[in-house]
Design a protein around this nucleic acid. Structure first.
Length: 815
RNA sequence: GCCGAGGUGGUGGAAUGGCAGACACGCGAGACUCAAAAUCUCGAGUCGCUUUGGCGGCGUGUGGGUUCAAGUCCCACCCUCGGCACCA
């Protein structure tokens, strides 16, 4: 056979797959459905190795399940809205539509050259009006259900550009365009009340048995449910109250100060009484320039006392100081805390720094509160009528007392915040609402959807939202009263678009509705979802929330959208994630011309377990190239029997190895442990080379060879198709049946048992499988190599782990 | 700072508490060749000893612990990465 020409072969089969619509899926099938999905890509303009890894994993999964006889849905699309397109428009004066479409067609070409088995007929882009029409429709439904609201929120503001900046457009407190210092500013924003589903998002984890534990744990902490109490502290000499949230009401007698966030309203309300207001204002300005991460990440907690005002501890009646400090965040709880330095390490450090008294209220046995806080449980002391109660019980007792006294109540608090979805930008789904002076905020009627993005927009990076510059867009008639009105000019966060795209694939080109529910309910939930670990919290919570909303709307029937989740590890270069914005991209185009897509796919899956971080290096790609060529050359060996060499492996051994390999690869691929699946096929190929031609072969080598090809289809589909054709098959191997193994062929009749003496390996014995312990003992103690070590010693223990290992513990006889 | 991962030969990695280093890369040796490439075969954690058959010590980020047995379980620590709500 001619040399392996990947350029020709890969093109040939990509064409055949497309022309014969091999991977297009239909709902009507007697087979069981299987929905395999990768997180949809952002069209940055170039595929990088992170993409290649993601889609190689997904393709193995899709192809494997197809060969297992399932009706597989495996679609792809584009998360096409977003900031980079608009940045490109500002920098290079290219329209976001043009920029995005170019990127999509470029990346689509790259994807096709990888030979991923997508159903391209279902391709979508979230920036297409046919798609975002339904994003808008769903958003209006949320509004109608009371899940959308407006309130003012903090944004990054560049005073020189007079514009809102994304976090990414601010580095070190400086604007990306003009390098002036940015500020925080309050603006009216659109929110989705995701907190209404907080409990269900947490409870839903019980159904997610196919998700990695680490993701559930991250989400749990993100949702951050905590039970506690809201307690009111009166400001001394006034009737004003300071409401705090605490998870430790049992420590209330130990509260020696309170801390409010710099944004807390109490500061402006009490301004006339605050003696050092100038200094406080300075502190507030400084913290407004920091991001939330900067605020909480600094080791040294900073703060400033609001001099002139005090709060009263409602339990002790004592006056205590009020501080403002930026480690207290305005978005969590009530934006104010009661500080118990004796029993909270952060409060303890703060108290030490500012010389605040530390009052111990929970007795600790071995802990000294002059050294650090005691955060564990114990018996209450210095706590009036509660002395002697265990702190765990006191939690409830104190809340009941507080509630009776009328200065507080039991509450549940979530870290999860409502979802701020509005952006003052052009390249996003327009928020389909109209502002009417008379009627207020009015939803755009369904018949007028989509609200399309206008073309007459200037991209300067300065001033208000770009949509405001379009005359045709802004001015409308109110759908209710017909008077002149203004369109909403904010667009949506792109996480909204990607919260329901998996549902659109089920019926991708429906023009009458977002999707036909019967089709959705046929395909959903997604059997296997695959994407980067960096999406563990935000996207994966938003999408779960959105699906539950669609269920409650009656258009979907399951509770959770993704049954099994695989979070692949990042592909890094020099230690940090590959991304266009960081400029550390390695493109598949650097590899494919030389080695082909099959080699690249095989290599990236073989290089590391899929869920682990992989620092890119092309060292080792030669090995995969060689392996593919070894398989290619085997064709001559098994089909012509032209090579005759000494046989190092007998027929039975080879067949046993084949069945073992089928079992191993099947199990591994099911669990997506792809690197070890590949290495076991490598061993089978090695076995086949060691066997080669045998005079009594009876077609054994051909049978094993076909198995190798079938096992490799998900990894190197082009190669396998070509060989399969040469073997005389008319049908694509992509739709052939996955091989099965025979358990009887795998059974071992003899087992080599390692023998350890005092924990050290001293020898091995060959014994029949499933042999009894007494027999093992006879064999082992009669073994020459072992006997040497037992001479003059006493056996204190003899441990036999069936079919696994023998351990002998000995000591000297005379001691 | 908080939450979640990870750390094993020169390199990527393998190993339901049971033989550490499978499978590869790179390296070395041999075969083939006029020669090279390709290919095929073999070798190797490391240090020491060796009568050249082997034998022994040390080895999974660091320090402790549990166990007949620890890369794996427990405790403390160090380093790297991901996320932290307007990058996607």
């Amino acid at each position: 056979m001619a040399e392996y020409n990947h350029l020709e072969i890969e093109k040939k089969w990509q064409k055949i797959w497309t022309e014969n619509k091999v991977f297009e899926s239909k709902e009507s099938s007697s087979k069981e459905k299987y929905y395999c999905l990768e997180m949809l890509p952002y069209p940055s303009g170039n595929l990088h190795m992170g993409h290649v890894r993601n889609y190689s994993i997904g393709d193995v999964c899709a192809r494997f399940h197809r060969m297992k006889g399932e009706n597989v849905l495996y679609p792809i699309g584009w998360d096409a809205f977003g900031l980079p397109a608009e940045n490109a428009a500002i920098k290079n004066n290219v329209h976001p539509v043009k920029w995005t479409k170019q990127n999509i067609s470029r990346m689509k070409e790259q994807l096709k050259s990888l030979g991923i088995s997508y159903d391209w007929s279902r391709e979508i882009a979230t920036c297409d009006p046919e798609y975002y029409k339904w994003t808008q429709w769903l958003f209006i439904k949320m509004w109608e259900k009371g899940l959308v609201f407006r309130k003012s929120a903090n944004v990054n503001w560049c005073p020189s550009c007079q514009t809102v900046l994304a976090n990414e457009q601010v580095s070190n407190g400086v604007c990306w365009r003009c390098e002036s210092h940015t500020e925080h500013r309050e603006l009216e924003q659109w929110f989705i009340k995701i907190t209404a589903y907080a409990d269900e998002l947490l409870e839903g984890h019980k159904q997610l048995t196919g998700w990695p534990e680490q993701v559930l744990s991250m989400q749990k902490n993100w949702i951050g449910k905590s039970c506690g109490a809201e307690i009111c502290f009166t400001i001394s000499g006034t009737d004003k109250k300071l409401k705090i949230f605490t998870t430790r009401p049992d420590t209330i007698f130990g509260v020696t100060f309170t801390v409010v966030a710099p944004e807390h309203e109490i500061i402006s309300k009490m301004k006339p009484k605050i003696l050092n207001y100038d200094k406080v204002a300075e502190y507030i300005l400084a913290s407004s320039r920091k991001s939330n991460i900067e605020r909480s990440a600094s080791k040294e907690k900073t703060g400033i006392r609001l001099e002139g005002i005090n709060a009263i501890n409602p339990a002790t009646g004592k006056e205590i100081p009020i501080f403002t400090a930026d480690y207290v965040l305005t978005g969590y709880g009530t934006g104010a805390i009661m500080a118990v330095p004796a029993h909270d390490q952060r409060d303890w450090e703060f108290a030490k720094k500012y010389n605040i008294p530390i009052v111990e209220v929970i007795k600790s046995n071995n802990s000294n509160i002059t050294e650090h806080a005691y955060e564990n449980e114990g018996e209450l002391i210095n706590s009036g009528q509660f002395n002697g109660i265990k702190s765990t019980e006191a939690f409830d007792t104190v809340i009941q007392w507080v509630q009776k006294q009328g200065f507080g109540k039991r509450t549940i608090n979530f870290k999860l915040k409502d979802w701020l979805i509005s952006r003052q930008r052009y390249w996003g789904t327009p928020i389909p609402f109209i502002h009417c002076d008379k009627c207020g905020i009015v939803a755009v009627p369904e018949k007028n959807l989509p609200v399309s993005l206008p073309e007459d927009v200037k991209f300067t990076g300065q001033g208000e939202s770009p949509l405001k510059t379009s005359k045709t867009f802004v001015n409308v008639k109110c759908p209710k009263c017909g008077m002149d009105a203004k369109r909403e000019t904010d667009t949506m966060d792109t996480f909204v678009d990607s919260s329901w795209y998996y549902a659109r694939y089920c019926d991708a080109h429906n023009i009458d509705f977002a999707f036909d529910s019967s089709k959705l309910n046929y395909w959903m939930p997604v059997n296997q979802y695959i994407g980067g670990i960096e999406h563990a919290c935000m996207h994966l919570i938003y999408a779960r929330f959105w699906y539950k909303f669609m269920r409650d709307l009656g258009i979907a029937k399951h509770d959770e959208p993704f049954t099994n989740l695989l979070t692949q590890g990042m592909v890094t270069l020099g230690g940090s994630a590959m991304s266009k914005s960081k400029g550390n991209i390695v493109s598949p185009d650097e590899i494919i011309p030389k080695y082909g897509a099959d080699t690249l796919r095989l290599f990236i899956l073989f290089a590391a377990p899929v869920e682990k971080q992989l620092d890119w290096s092309s060292d080792g790609i030669e090995g995969c190239w060689r392996f593919i060529n070894r398989i290619w050359r085997l064709f001559d060996v098994v089909s012509t029997k032209s090579v005759e060499v000494a046989c190092q492996k007998n027929k039975d051994e080879l067949l046993k190895l084949m069945h073992k390999t089928i079992k191993k690869v099947t199990c591994d691929v099911e669990k997506l442990q792809l690197n070890t699946a590949i290495s076991s096929v490598m061993e089978l190929v090695k076995g086949l080379y060691a066997y080669k031609y045998h005079s009594n072969d009876e077609g054994v080598s051909l049978e094993v060879y076909k198995t190798v090809i079938l096992l490799m289809v998900p990894f190197t589909p082009h190669l396998c198709e070509e060989i399969w054709e040469k073997l005389g098959y008319k049908e694509c191997v992509s739709t052939y049946t996955w091989p099965v193994f025979d358990e009887n062929m795998i059974k071992e009749s003899f087992i080599e048992l390692p023998v350890q003496i005092n924990g050290k390996l001293k020898g091995k014995v060959l014994v029949p499988a499933d042999i009894q312990e007494t027999e093992v003992k006879n064999i082992v103690t009669a073994n020459n190599k072992i006997m040497v070590h037992l001479k003059g010693k006493q056996i204190t223990k003899f441990i036999y782990i069936k079919n696994k290992i023998v351990t002998i513990v000995i000591k000297d006889l005379h001691i």
